[in-house]
Design a binder for these strands. Structure first.
Lengths: 147, 147
DNA sequence: TATTAAATGATAATTGTTATCATTTAATAC
DNA sequence: GTATTAAATGATAACAATTATCATTTAATA
């Protein structure tokens, strides 16, 4: 079974355990977020589901994202331009590489992050509970493009 | 001369060089941002200057921040709750320690960040132009507080 | 099938920010 | 000092993203 289907099932199980109703709209939103292809915005999700659910309300997308965030099953990525995009596939803080040219978001592995957190905690006496690490620049695909 | 007065002068010099007018309101806003005590929000700046300039408009604060950002003399700190705060004292990207209890923002030194950027660039072929690194948690003052 | 609490859809309200425009003012030339 | 003019300001309207409201619909359960 694919990675995102597993994520869907995990999220849906948690929703059921919380005594919440499984509506077709909710299921569809969870599926899009579990996949999180391209780290969709609210508008992206709404647009993607408009065909299947012509009456799908923006409010429903917002409501379900708020719910899933509160359950810890969706990560909100807020960007410097004020826009928000969402990741239900990796709902824990993790570094991003954000291409300012093609707007793609990559999720690199970064072994040194844990080391850095330890360095900060020992040097400053600050107890780290969460973090945010984003690199902005040009991805390899855009770098190798002819202008 | 204090650090922030030097920052003021640098910013003011750049504004003059750009052929912009030095109004009393602009000077006052620059001074608050050059100091950046507590990393003020737009509202903070507006409130702080209301006594000296009773007619100071919010729009003027916004306009001058946009201007100073475009000159690279102010850094905008956008937080997960959607709020923005500003730093005209260190207008380059740098890590923050953000206390979720007392809301204070600390600026730690972090030698390992440059190393991490090199690691990312060599492993992923991504050209890093800028970054954002924030740690959320509890500061030492709040940790040692009696409950 | 009936019941009921929860979810939805439509849309109003809210908030933070930007745009508009008439008025004021800093910089400059005289 | 006065006149000139482009820029800045103040007041407020417009805007966009998000949240709240409320009547209607629906999933879960009996």
């Amino acid at each position: 079974m694919s990675d995102y289907k597993k994520r869907s099932e995990i999220i849906i199980r948690k929703l059921r355990q919380s005594g919440l109703k499984m509506t077709p709209q909710r299921l569809a939103i969870v599926n899009v977020l579990a996949k999180s292809e391209g780290h969709p915005s609210v508008e992206d999700i709404h647009a993607r589901l408009k065909k299947e659910f012509p009456t799908m309300s923006l409010a429903t997308v917002y409501r379900n994202i708020v719910l899933l965030k509160s359950l810890g099953e969706v990560l909100e990525l807020g960007f410097p331009d004020g826009s928000n995009r969402y990741d239900g596939n990796r709902p824990f803080p993790h570094p991003h590489l954000i291409c300012i040219k093609c707007k793609k978001i990559l999720d690199p592995d970064l072994d040194s992050l844990e080391k850095m957190k330890k360095e900060v905690e020992s040097e400053t006496n600050f107890r780290i509970l969460s973090h945010r690490l984003d690199f902005f620049g040009i991805c390899s695909a855009c770098l190798s493009e002819k202008v």
